[in-house]
């Protein structure tokens, strides 16, 4: 068994090495794939905070992914058409600046997570899964039936948004941005796990009655985790939209919520680097098997079954063994 810490270091190095090698080799498509992995892993890290640490199986995280995407799409489309978003009560213009878009994406997703969490977290288990799914579908159909921003056809953005001091059109530089966001989210998740908040949240997952008898509220702990989780997944959505220069209602679809869960299960629920491994495997399979067959997801399904049946700790658990209590 390899210590998890080393394994995590190796995964992070691998995440850096592949696109750098592709860059030296002049293979921009590989860099794009690696960027996709980093962004989807970021969405997974977001969900992992709710699911792994808080035990909240949300089947509606596409809501935040989609909101982040539409935050980017709406702001950038107004910027490219030079039509302000609003003129009353004060002028709000569109923007092509990534930091501003990210801020909007994070704030909007966090607010949505707060509202959704306030309602959903009163339930648990299967009911929680179903209500989060219902919210996801509500946003999905709303996006489809809102013609102003493309409706079913989605929104195209002609030029990637800008980041001060960087050329975001250069694949390796955009990868760098996404990788930095992922690394920051992993750092935050790592700190949360070891923090008093993480300890209490983790205990609320295992024994809510205990947490209540020591005077803390499991509901508030979970709500906080849900908001942090939604905000990170929202940031991933904004980056994903920028990667494709395209936003569409599929970013809100329940299939996407399911895929984010699959990343986590493949990598290992609650394992810090689980979503990174899961997303990397998912994108690789999609790319390699997708070349052979349209029905590549059959193989993904078989792999998922194997992981669930054989390796309960996911792929990280298979290599690093059982999770050690957090120090």
């Amino acid at each position: 068994m390899i210590p998890e810490r080393w394994l995590n270091g190796a995964i992070l190095l691998g995440m850096l090495a592949v696109p750098l090698w592709a860059w030296a080799d002049g293979a921009p498509f590989t860099i794009t794939l690696a960027t996709k992995v980093a962004i989807l892993a970021l969405a997974g890290v977001g969900l992992n905070i709710a699911l792994g640490l808080g035990g909240l199986v949300s089947l509606g995280h596409a809501v935040f992914f989609g909101l982040g995407g539409y935050a980017m799409g709406i702001l950038a489309s107004h910027a490219q058409s030079f039509v302000p978003l609003a003129e009353t009560p004060f002028l709000i213009e569109g923007t092509k600046s990534m930091p501003v878009i990210w801020l909007v994406a994070v704030v909007v997703s966090a607010l949505a997570a707060l509202m959704i969490g306030l309602l959903c977290l009163r339930t648990s288990g299967v009911y929680f899964i179903m209500i989060t799914l219902a919210f996801g579908q509500m946003f999905y159909y709303f996006a489809i039936s809102w013609p102003r921003y493309g409706g079913e056809d989605g929104l195209s953005i002609y030029v990637r948004n800008s980041f001060p001091g960087l050329n975001t059109l250069d694949p390796i530089q955009f990868f760098g941005i996404c990788f930095a966001a992922l690394a920051a989210a992993l750092w935050l998740h790592g700190r949360l796990i070891a923090s008093p908040f993480g300890l209490a949240l983790n205990a609320a997952r295992q024994s809510p009655a205990r947490v209540e008898t020591i005077g803390l509220s499991p509901f508030r702990l979970r709500l906080t985790a849900f908001v942090i989780s939604g905000a990170i997944t929202g940031l991933a959505g904004a980056l994903f939209a920028d990667l494709n220069r395209f936003v569409s209602p599929t970013m809100f679809s329940w299939q996407l919520s399911g895929e984010i869960i699959i990343f986590i299960i493949l990598g290992g629920i609650g394992r810090l680097y689980g979503p990174v491994v899961g997303a990397a495997l998912f994108v690789t399979l999609e790319h390699v098997l997708g070349g052979f067959s349209e029905f590549w997801q059959v193989y993904l399904g078989a792999l998922l079954l194997a992981v669930v049946l054989v390796a309960r700790g996911g792929l990280i658990g298979l290599v690093a063994g059982r999770e050690r209590p957090h120090e």
Binding site: F197, L199, N202, V211, I214, G215, L216
Partner: peptide, 25 residues
């Protein structure tokens, strides 16, 4: 009603956290 996956010390720290009050860091 203890957090079974956690260590003994972590369970005791949870109590101390409750005694301190406020929002956990």
């Amino acid at each position: 009603a203890l957090a079974m996956e956690d260590t003994v010390l972590q369970n005791a720290i949870l109590g101390a956290l409750g005694a301190r009050g406020g929002t956990p860091g």
